[in-house]
Nucleic acid binder design. Sequence first.
DNA 1: GTCTATAACTCGATAGAC
DNA 2: GTCTATCGAGTTATAGAC
Lengths: 185, 185
Amino acid sequence: MSSAREALLDRAIAWFTEHGVGDTSMRTIAEGIGTSHRMLHYHFGSREGLLTAVVTATWGQQYRALADLLEASADPYIAAYALWDRMADQAAQLGPLFFEVAAAAMQGKPWAAPLGQWIREWKSTLETLFVRVGRGREQAALSAQMTLAMARGLLFELALTEGNGRAAADTAIRTFLQSIRTPGV
Amino acid sequence: MSSAREALLDRAIAWFTEHGVGDTSMRTIAEGIGTSHRMLHYHFGSREGLLTAVVTATWGQQYRALADLLEASADPYIAAYALWDRMADQAAQLGPLFFEVAAAAMQGKPWAAPLGQWIREWKSTLETLFVRVGRGREQAALSAQMTLAMARGLLFELALTEGNGRAAADTAIRTFLQSIRTPGV
DNA sequence: GTCTATAACTCGATAGAC
DNA sequence: GTCTATCGAGTTATAGAC
């Protein structure tokens, strides 16, 4: 509600995107985004509250954008490529933070839990699309799982090479999508 | 050399595997593995020195084991599956730490750099195997990239679900390896 | 909402005895 | 190699004025 809080949150997201979460303190990030650590405590309650807000806001909007994208296209292959295109564009900036927060979710850190939840939902959403195009439940689940795994694996590499190799990654995902399009697979 | 140092390193690796790196202090980990923070400083010099030693030891032995495995098998598809099998077995334990350290490498943290280096080498190793089996340079590079991306993406999901879904992941990797085996892909 | 001040504590790292 | 003791800085979080 408060616009001061939201302005602060936007800048915090930008800061974490660039520097990661890691061991950074409230003071360090406060200085980095031009406020005081007192204000961060005032608006977000605690360090964990700030992290939760950042994760929720970042991947909440990401999740809604992707869900829209998937709903807009009837063809799961076209939708999957559009999804890839969007993720790959942001890989160099958002990739490192994504994998850091995901690792935190794997370790059971509460502030990272929302991301883990959304990752599970992406799979269901994509699976539904494959069903809608005529695949059986099991085949749709397999296709969704493989598509997301391939996209995420390529994203991992892109993030590790700071965005170099985008063309090669595009070729890889296209080759893969082509291969699961053929019947019997 | 010193056996006290190596015993300490072994226990530190086990501790990080279970708890992650995150924001944990020298004092916390020292207590966790039954020593004093003074001893950690004595043997590893600094917090960064300890992290570097842990990363180097963990993925140094991992890298050598995988290199042997790839060299032992002439068929890259069999080798790739053996590689997958080994990684998937350890996914629930080592996966979270792997992705956390990889994210640190993406963010340029010096202590995580060795892992980034090895990840690049895995690709070259697998690519060489595809060349040896008759693929052209470009096709071999593409196959190696896709194989590693798929394996890593499935690993990501396995780690996030604490090892549940191993059977589904096995099916996925087998389906994928089958699909890139057919000529023209 | 924003400020200064500060409580209460933990951090990495080192000194020096043994 | 291992111990106790400690330094100085940095930490989260809160109190209270404005």
